[in-house]
């Protein structure tokens, strides 16, 4: 018996499973007859889920097909949700970018973007404006 500490879990936020124990069927020396036996136990519901692995380490699980479909649906829903979040964030950034482009700038900022002469003009202009305000 081994304990699952959710090493492969955690992909769904807020859906952490409590720790649980499983029986691992070793595969390295599993013969055909033994495989048929454990599969029969699984079909009778005596071993559910049926876990395979070597060195007492769970590697694969046989689960009901309905559970597999439910898992796929869950993963798909999580993917769609993540994609919707991503698209919403993308739209928000594009809108922000458009808005900032349309918001304009000051002539000092424009001058500074040109280079040293523009920077000098912007400094002089700010100083002149400051002086004018103090008069």
């Amino acid at each position: 018996m081994t304990r699952n500490d959710n090493a492969h879990g955690g992909s769904s936020p807020g859906a952490e499973l409590p720790k649980f124990s499983v029986n691992v069927v070793p595969t390295d020396q599993l013969r055909h007859e033994e495989l048929a036996t454990v599969l029969n136990l699984y079909r009778r519901g005596q071993v559910t889920p049926l876990i395979f692995g070597d060195g007492n380490k769970p590697e694969a699980a046989i689960i009901p097909f309905a559970a597999f479909v439910r898992l796929m649906k869950y993963d798909h829903a999580a993917h769609v949700h993540a994609e919707a979040d991503f698209q919403a964030e993308l739209s928000r950034r594009i809108q922000e970018s458009d808005a900032s482009g349309e918001a304009g700038m000051t002539v000092e900022e424009l001058a500074e973007s040109l280079g040293p002469l523009g920077q000098q003009w912007a400094d002089d202009h700010r100083a002149a404006q400051q002086e004018k305000r103090h008069e």
Partner: peptide
Amino acid sequence: RILPTAGLKQDLQ
């Protein structure tokens, strides 16, 4: 606020 076109920036540059 002023909104310079890309062309105006090139003129000034």
